[in-house]
Amino acid sequence: MSQGDLFIVFIALIGGAIRVSTPFMFVALGECLTEKSGRINLGLEGNLVLGAMVAYAGSYTTGSPWLGVLMAGCSGLVLGAMHGYICKLPKVNDIAVGIAFMSFGIGLAFFFGKPYIQPTAPRLEAIPLGGWSSDPLVAQALQVNPLFFLGIALALFLRWAFANTRWGLILRMTGDSAASARAMGVSVDLVRLLATAAGGFLAGVGGAFLSLFYPGSWNEGLSSGQGLMAVALVIFARWDPIRCVLAALLFGAAGALGPSLQSIGVSQGYYFFNAAPYILTLFIMIASARSKSAAREAPGELSIVK
């Protein structure tokens, strides 16, 4: 492997990290928000796939991809709110409901998405940030979608809001000690319902990125478990929005490993490198299960922590 090849792989990895990380980022931030309130929504994979379908359909019918993004978010909001509502009923387990909602969201997307597999919808425009370089590879890698920046801004905002707003403190309080929240007159169920709905909205937006930017079309094999991996990522990021973004970038780079190696002609082990994000998930789960500081930072009300 020559110097040039290394450079190509490096640029491709960075470009891939930026491209592939965006849906991870949105789902992880949504899940982070939900888990901070003391509830787990495993169904975000469903929100992601349904969001992808709705965004594509919305963009195709209205002609505006941004309207599609908004519609995708709203579809996620509805799924999240349903999850939140069902979980407040007595003796309902949020993890079981989450798995049901994952299947429900995916099924809904496949059912209504059939007519949109063929047609071409207007896609989101990227911001070309690679204009300074004459290298077409660099220019191509730095075609960054505005949603990527939106996600980073959102992470900064969440981090600030968790510490500096009344809502942030109430959310953390609900997630850490429902009894204290109740003693203070906070409606625990309402806080969790809102947090799950908002988390669902973000996951829906993440889905819109899949169908409207990268890979950039709607089909049934669009998501390959990103929604589920994002849940693992939140644990890895120890419930911190900024660390969620960093973890998403790491996952994105891992996902881009296979294609970027292929671009310099290394096709051996292509499938193995494509599986990198999944292997990474597995190792991260093992590592974070042993981590004692993760246990300290976990919201006390999560059913996996109790």
Partner: peptide, 17 residues
């Protein structure tokens, strides 16, 4: 049983109460 929120600081607990 304490009604303080363990993950918040003392200051945060006072202000949010």
């Amino acid at each position: 049983q304490f009604t303080l929120v363990p993950c918040l600081t003392a200051a945060e607990n006072l202000v949010i109460s």
